[in-house]
């Protein structure tokens, strides 16, 4: 096997190559893309960096991170409560099925070593498409299971009225503000008869929508209403022609708590902590 090489991407061509590799590997979610990392970085006053893992010149994995601190003393900046899928292993065409698993372990081991050497004790989220996280556990990382949610959309669309209304003001949340300025989506408010409204941000992807909610927003609504609100996003005009709505981020774990969520489905995810870091 050709040697594994890890490089820090700095050129526009490399970023394009990353996007193309994600798309080809079936991991092309918005939260894995540089455009999303840029949005988070602008909102949170951080930087971003992309480490590409190559085998024989081809991209086999990568780590997209929010960072802060001067060069040489950089640290990983957590994006929570907003998702950023940092760790990826991409299976290349032509790799035999029996090589695929061990090669994935090697790629992730190399990325883990690189991140630990550059950032000390990084913590970040793994892409939901990255199932095999054993290399991290074996290297002393702590791997914490998390969940996201997926609402499949019907082709015909949903005619029932949404339980949210367009949010007209400027959101307090810096990520929502920047995302709206960049025309990445729209903001909606779930209102209750009295008390505060929960603001939801709905981002448009090519094939899917991404719903975001701030931490603590769940407190504004009773549990059964929260589930109904999430389901009703399927009747937003933005949902027409999309395949699914994804709900990732700490706010959604609070939002859905232990509620029955049919027809939503659970999407297993993971947060990882470098050696010596507990949380």
């Amino acid at each position: 096997m050709a040697a594994i090489e890890i490089v820090r991407a700095t050129r526009a061509e490399e970023i394009e190559e990353w996007s193309a590799a994600l798309e080809a590997g079936g991991a092309g979610l918005l939260f894995s893309r540089v455009v999303w990392a840029e949005t988070l970085a602008a909102a949170l006053g951080a930087s971003w960096s992309l480490h590409l893992c190559r085998i024989g010149g081809e991209i086999a994995g990568g780590a997209l991170l929010l960072t802060e601190g001067a060069s040489g003393r950089e640290r990983v900046r957590r994006s929570a409560p907003y998702p950023l899928f940092s760790l990826h292993v991409l299976h290349r065409e032509g790799v035999s099925p029996t090589r695929r698993i061990p090669q994935g372990v090697e790629v992730l081991s190399s990325l883990a070593r690189e991140l630990a050497s550059v950032y000390g004790r990084p913590s970040c989220d793994a892409s939901p498409s990255l199932v095999d996280l054993r290399a991290l556990s074996w290297a002393g990382w702590r791997v914490e299971p998390r969940v996201g949610f997926c609402l499949p959309l019907s082709r015909e669309g949903d005619e029932s009225p949404p339980l949210v209304e367009a949010f007209s003001g400027e959101p307090n949340d810096p990520v929502a503000r920047i995302a709206l300025e960049r025309k990445m989506g729209a903001a909606y408010a779930a209102r209750v008869r009295s008390g505060p409204a929960a603001t939801l941000l709905v981002l448009r992807g090519e094939r899917r929508l991404y719903a975001l909610v701030g931490r603590g927003a769940a407190r504004a609504l009773p549990a059964s209403r929260r589930v109904a609100v999430a389901r009703s996003l399927s009747s937003l005009p933005e949902a027409k022609g999309k395949e699914e709505i994804l709900f990732f981020g700490d706010g959604w774990e609070e939002w859905f708590a232990c509620e029955a969520i049919e027809p939503l489905r659970i999407v297993p995810a993971a947060r990882v902590f470098g050696p010596g870091r507990s949380r």
Partner: peptide, 18 residues
């Protein structure tokens, strides 16, 4: 058994196995 929300709500520690 992917839906571990009840375990998390009850503050159980969870980990992946393969």
């Amino acid at each position: 058994s992917d839906d571990l929300r009840a375990f998390r709500q009850e503050a159980w520690e969870t980990a992946f196995r393969y």
